[in-house]
């Protein structure tokens, strides 16, 4: 049950990445997890729901992609998938070298992207007759307002 340690980091990263003036909320978080990572997907999503409360990501859907174990043949360089329960799969499909490979994929664990929704024009950058200079502090303030707004939502 080490998911808490991971999800805490996920929420921190997502909130940091979404800290852009015109972002109103995060709609989805796309996460890549290797087959070799022991992650309980149901825990992951419910913990995210819990830890993201009051943040810009509290409504976000968590989309997990599992990547398979892939190895690179030491003889010919071909990259192929191994199934740990299928001995046949341990031979390189190209040069037939058996068990002569190095693991190159299957332990990934990263946030690939987030899907965000922008603010309505009225609540984000206001085209101001005062011009570009005035929009810089206004943008900062909007960023603040956005966080406070979702915290109370």
């Amino acid at each position: 049950m080490h998911e808490m340690a991971f999800v805490r980091n996920v929420v921190d990263i997502v909130v940091e990445e979404a800290d852009v003036p015109d972002v109103a909320e995060v709609r989805a978080v796309h996460i890549v997890i290797g087959e070799g990572r022991d992650i309980v997907e149901d825990f992951f999503e419910s913990l995210f729901r819990y830890l993201a409360r009051g943040t810009v990501a509290e409504q976000a859907e968590v989309i997990l992609y599992r990547t398979p174990y892939m190895v690179r043949c030491k003889r010919c360089g071909f990259i192929f998938h191994v199934n740990v329960f299928d001995r046949e799969s341990l031979a390189c499909p190209v040069c037939k070298a058996y068990r002569e490979y190095k693991l190159v994929s299957g332990l990934e664990f990263y946030i690939s992207k987030i899907e965000v929704a922008g603010k309505e024009p009225s609540e984000s950058q206001i085209p101001s007759p005062e011009g570009q200079l005035a929009s810089v502090p206004a943008g900062d303030e909007t960023g603040q307002a956005k966080q406070e707004g979702t915290a109370t939502a």
Partner: peptide, 13 residues
């Protein structure tokens, strides 16, 4: 609410 857009993150958790 405006339409969605993607932000590339690519950050190790």
């Amino acid at each position: 609410m405006n339409e969605s857009r993607m932000i590339e993150v690519k950050r190790n958790i």
